[in-house]
Design a protein around this nucleic acid. Sequence first.
DNA 1: GGCGATACTGTTAGCGCTAACCTTGACGGC
DNA 2: GCCGTCAAGGTTAGCGCTAACAGTATCGCC
Lengths: 354, 354
Amino acid sequence: MTTRGGDGTATPAVKTRKPRSSRTGRATMADVAERVGISAITVSRAFKRPELVVPELRQRILDTAQSMGYVPNQAASALASARSMTVAVLIPSMTNMVFVETLAGIHDMLLPRGYRALIGVTHYSPEEEERLIRTYLQFQPDGLLLTGTDHTAVARTYLSALSSPTVHMMELLDDPDSLSVGCSQEEGGRLMTTHLLARGYRRIGFVAVQLDPRTLARLDGYRHALEEAGLYDETRVWRLPDRSSIQLGAAMIDRLMAEGSDCDAVFFCNDDLAQGALFQCQRRGIRVPDQLAIAGFNDLPASAWTTPTLTTVATPRYAIGRHAAAMLLDLMDGKDPPQRRLDLGLTFIAREST
Amino acid sequence: MTTRGGDGTATPAVKTRKPRSSRTGRATMADVAERVGISAITVSRAFKRPELVVPELRQRILDTAQSMGYVPNQAASALASARSMTVAVLIPSMTNMVFVETLAGIHDMLLPRGYRALIGVTHYSPEEEERLIRTYLQFQPDGLLLTGTDHTAVARTYLSALSSPTVHMMELLDDPDSLSVGCSQEEGGRLMTTHLLARGYRRIGFVAVQLDPRTLARLDGYRHALEEAGLYDETRVWRLPDRSSIQLGAAMIDRLMAEGSDCDAVFFCNDDLAQGALFQCQRRGIRVPDQLAIAGFNDLPASAWTTPTLTTVATPRYAIGRHAAAMLLDLMDGKDPPQRRLDLGLTFIAREST
DNA sequence: GGCGATACTGTTAGCGCTAACCTTGACGGC
DNA sequence: GCCGTCAAGGTTAGCGCTAACAGTATCGCC
């Protein structure tokens, strides 16, 4: 199937140029240069530093490139310039809207600046994250965006040996050497619990799933708020390693009933759990919030529409993505970002379910 | 901040080797080779073709590489081997779960084989798709996965000039030269409409949003089924360019009421619209399905939990991703896939809302 | 008329890796 | 002992691009 050397006829007019696109069948910069009658570097500049080429020639180069179907080879460019124009982004899950919206923020910031995101999914596992970091380092990314702050020891080694800047998203780091953009998950947990206390609930439960550091921080906020009120009771806390889903939220209502729980309110660590709980309460005829109050976290789109609507805490995930990417752009430009730790805050949203 | 040329001391023992990692600060293959006392090509083989290196030496190479923090440079590898081990994947939206699950199927198939996905979001625009194709061709992808079949003329030119294989997802193509994996959207629309007719509904409405080709195909299926029954009425079709959302579904119920629509059933082109409609009916006291039947499309997770539960058509999106990726792997291996057009079918799910 | 400054384009070398070929030595069959 | 074969590793060249420096005009100024 190889087409190399198929043409034995010498073409003496062409001096040293090899036949166009020896391997891949694609035109190269040299092919374009030859056609225009200039050198390759000028073609390179016409694309990368247009201000260095006189407009008329630049236009001729671009037109010729277009007509030849020339597309720059990113691998060659990255190799020669030691800049990959690529940012590696690691998120725990792609089915969780929270991270998808963060990604959207990152994209909206990076793409106009010519950077591309290489997306990796860690499935909430630091080991998988380590593996992905190793894999993505092969692409010599100009920057890294990581979710959370719990990395394996090996991953930390990679990161500190790395010259490319790294920004941590979602959680905030106190370490002055690290960069982070996020909000205080602990405060979120505290905010909601304080609200429930203010509404008069006294036997407040907490359902924690996935058990990732952010969930546990919310649990901490819940616990601290209840401890301060002298109302913390370990038996009203459920910890499950499963991933968050509507189905699991519904199942939790069944379980609470089966266990004869005395909770007058339940704070679910995530909105989809809370939505499932709402649906199941409706099905079982449990009146919300009279018999049982239900609260969620994250403010997913459906939460404003369920019956009753869901009290929750909105997290600024799109903004987190944007700001983290902006911080990274600063760092990649060699500039120091205005802040090394950016708290974007939370918005408490009281609705009908509490 | 630059550390280049900091060490002026010559080391005469080293003959022609330049100082380690001249630009990026990272170890190269040659650095590892020198340390082990072998040539670079053997290091390359230890990683890429392990069976060509005796186990003992291979282990020594891998250990040394590890201890030096060596990570292969993907750009150099891609340039030298003309294989990027990268597949470009273009989807219309990242916030639509349908495509996120397709992505998951693609990942699960590609990653174990060493391929990586470069993800692009077209926002349902063929022009943006064209732009993304151009951008991603710079990465010399070994294959392409595209959503749908409506591409711009220029995009078609790129694709046909390309030697890398392309597979189209979601919709099916009749063209024998193209490869596609999906299901018949038209059949989905017909299936649901036939069901509604069988249940005795006669004034069936259709709400089409986004107006992408798949939505329009569903609309076609709806129209054909109703025309066959002699019940098609253009005034019961709503076409909106907006993107699908719960909020819009709720708003549509308000609009139908305001317009005094006589529909006894409404078929929404997407589940989140239908969910929004269900929520709004509940809020407004419209009994579903007695006063108004509601149907959706795609079977999103919440649809099995709303009150009433939502009648819908499940699309095999995860399987589509897997099979499309598998087909591409075959093609990239130079093998012909068993089928060039793979219909994965649909599953009709009757629930309480109709 | 000589010097420097400015604007544009070219030359050279090499980024880090791998394809294709080459060398070496061990082994076995006749 | 000659030849072929195979296994294990090395040599050479070059993938397509860009950094760094090097021309070559053109212009202005004293």
